[in-house]
């Protein structure tokens, strides 16, 4: 930021400008060092590991190599888990959007003096550990629980149960990442100028048209930020699939974990991690381009 300001004022260079711009770089140092140590080096390590080859005769030991076939092996073995991860994360993101939008709208526009309290309530569950909350869902969705008993009485459950099905995994993902959807939406809707809605009404737009032409476009930055903040962690999550899913619901996070812990196959696990990152990056770029909001995010 400091750098940018100094450069913009650059038509007539003030005496202090040179020094100020250097101060800017200096202020960047801690952040860059942090990124370097805790992001760049681990990523480079991960990438090198993903290309390692096993040492003959020593199981679980790997030597530096350039074994690109690790990637092919990993994708051939685990493409179903990849697809499932993106499918589950996609559905969960959509559900979260549908649930969060009215909620965020209400908090931002209608809640009045309850606004702060409601925001705290949205965030409050995050004070308990992610793991504990997911365990709690096991109790809520247990076979003998009121929820399951009620739904079974209506005969709407394919397996007569919720726990250990894909429904439970998607529900868990939706629940766990919902606050990440609500907050950006709230931030976008809270800035919405009520006079624009009034104007729209004055111009004889009905509520649906007003929403389509005014509210929704103005909240788009929040929608984009919210969907990304929900989708990305959901696609890499393995706890919901582990605790709430069955053997048929394993996601890519579970595959990475199994390769690291049980097979001690670090190259394949690293290759999987890398491909997950790459796939998410591609999806995110495609999405942002399509949403046409690069400068808004």
């Amino acid at each position: 930021m400091v750098v940018g300001v100094a450069a913009k004022g650059g038509t007539s260079i003030a005496p202090g400008a040179q020094r100020r711009s250097r101060t800017g770089y200096f202020l960047l140092l801690p952040g860059m060092a942090w990124l370097g140590i805790f992001f760049a080096i681990p990523i480079a390590t991960l990438f090198m590991t993903s290309l390692q080859a096993p040492v003959e005769g020593a199981s679980g030991q790997y030597a530096p190599a350039f074994q690109v076939s690790n990637y092919a092996d990993a994708i051939i073995e685990y493409w179903p888990q990849f697809l499932r991860s993106f499918l589950y994360a996609g559905i969960a993101t959509l559900l979260a959007l549908v649930i969060a939008y009215p909620l965020a709208y209400f908090i931002a526009v209608k809640a009045g003096r309850w606004r702060t309290l409601m925001l705290v309530l949205v965030i409050a569950p995050s004070f308990a550990s992610f793991l504990l909350r997911t365990y709690a869902w096991r109790t809520i969705l247990a076979d003998e629980s009121p929820v399951t008993t009620f739904l079974n009485a209506l005969h709407v459950l394919p397996d007569d149960r919720i726990l250990n099905t894909s429904i439970a995994v998607i529900a868990g993902l939706t629940y766990n990442f919902l606050p990440f959807m609500v907050l950006p939406l709230y931030a976008a809707l809270e800035r919405l100028d009520p006079r624009l809605i009034e104007a729209s009404n004055d111009l004889y737009a009905n509520p649906i048209t007003t929403f389509r032409k005014v509210t929704w476009p103005l909240s788009l930055p929040g929608v984009v930020a919210g969907t990304l903040l929900t989708f990305i962690p959901a696609a890499g999550d393995y706890i919901n699939a582990e605790l709430l899913g069955s053997t048929q619901d394993r996601m890519i996070g579970n595959a990475i974990q199994t390769n690291f812990i049980d097979f001690r196959d670090y190259p394949i696990a690293s290759a999987l991690s890398f491909m997950l990152m790459a796939a998410i990056l591609v999806l995110v770029f495609a999405y942002i381009r399509r949403a046409g909001t690069e400068d808004l995010v």
């Binding site: 681990p42 390590t45 590991t49 530096p64 706890i239 974990q257 690291f260 812990i261 690293s270």
Partner: peptide, 19 residues
């Protein structure tokens, strides 16, 4: 199975054999 994140990080670090 669940509390694996630190272990996985340790495992990643461990695979860097050319210490």
């Amino acid at each position: 199975m669940i509390s694996n994140q630190p272990e996985m990080i340790a495992a990643i670090a461990g695979t860097m054999r050319s210490t």
